[in-house]
Every structure is written in C-alpha cells, then in structure tokens.
Amino acid sequence: MKLKVLSGAALWLALISLAHVWWNVGFGNLAHRFEVLMGKERDELVVGFLPVT
C-alpha cells in the first residue's frame, strides 16, 4: 500500500512538473537555457522599439 502511494505521488509529481514546463516554460526554451548554462549557445534577448518620436 505504502509503495503504491509513493509511486502514485512520484508519478503525479513528474506529470505536474512536465505540464508546468510545457505550459509555462516551453521545452525548446528549457533546452536553450541548458545550452546557455553549458556555454554551448549564446544567450539571446529580443529588444523591441517603437519609432514614434
């Protein structure tokens, strides 16, 4: 019984974490952040401008 509860909790945790990454972070973004941390890719930032003056 204890093993079943622990397995269920672990599975729930894994699923909820994957869902969080999918919805809130994005797997592509996560992979990019990892590559940046490893020094394999350059960090990138898009800067917008509104030429209204």
Partner: peptide
Amino acid sequence: TEHSEEGSLFRSQKFTDWPTV
C-alpha cells in the same frame, strides 16, 4: 556574460503601434 565568451545576442524588432508592443 559568465557563460559566454562572445557575449549575448541582442536582436532588435521594430513595432509600428503601441497595442502590439
């Protein structure tokens, strides 16, 4: 940056109106 010898990449994007920004 600490993790890049070349520096980070900053790209510019032009907008034409405020709601889109």
